[in-house]
Amino acid sequence: MEKDKLTHLEESLLAAVAALGEDAYGLAVYNKLCELEDDPNQGSMYVTLDRLERKGYLVSQYTLPLPERGGLPKKYYRVKPEGAAALKESFEKSKRKMKAVPNSFWRFVKWPIKFPIYK
């Protein structure tokens, strides 16, 4: 399986499925995603979940039809080891980026920006 870079939404979805553990089905993942992202879209979420499955990062299984879903089943997702590795790699990249910015930056950044004057 070729390695693909995770997009922002893919990373958030993997994190949401990982956070939910055994309760990770569509609507629960969407609710978790609402906590992680601003205004996520359900259509985008399912297309991206499907892509993550095709990439081999997730695995899913349908339950039996349920009355509370109008006779339709729930689809439960689990993160595969490959998905966990990709998520870890992505988090480590973010950590490296965070480390690259010095703490002093957050204290002193303010508007207007001033550049030193060279003469």
Binding site: G26, L27, Y30, Q42, G43, Y46, V47, D50, L66, E68, R69, G70, L72, P73, K74, K75
Partner: peptide, 15 residues
Amino acid sequence: PISCRIDLWGDFHQT
């Protein structure tokens, strides 16, 4: 969309 119709409709029904 066919690929996520069942999942979306189930969610819509539930909420």
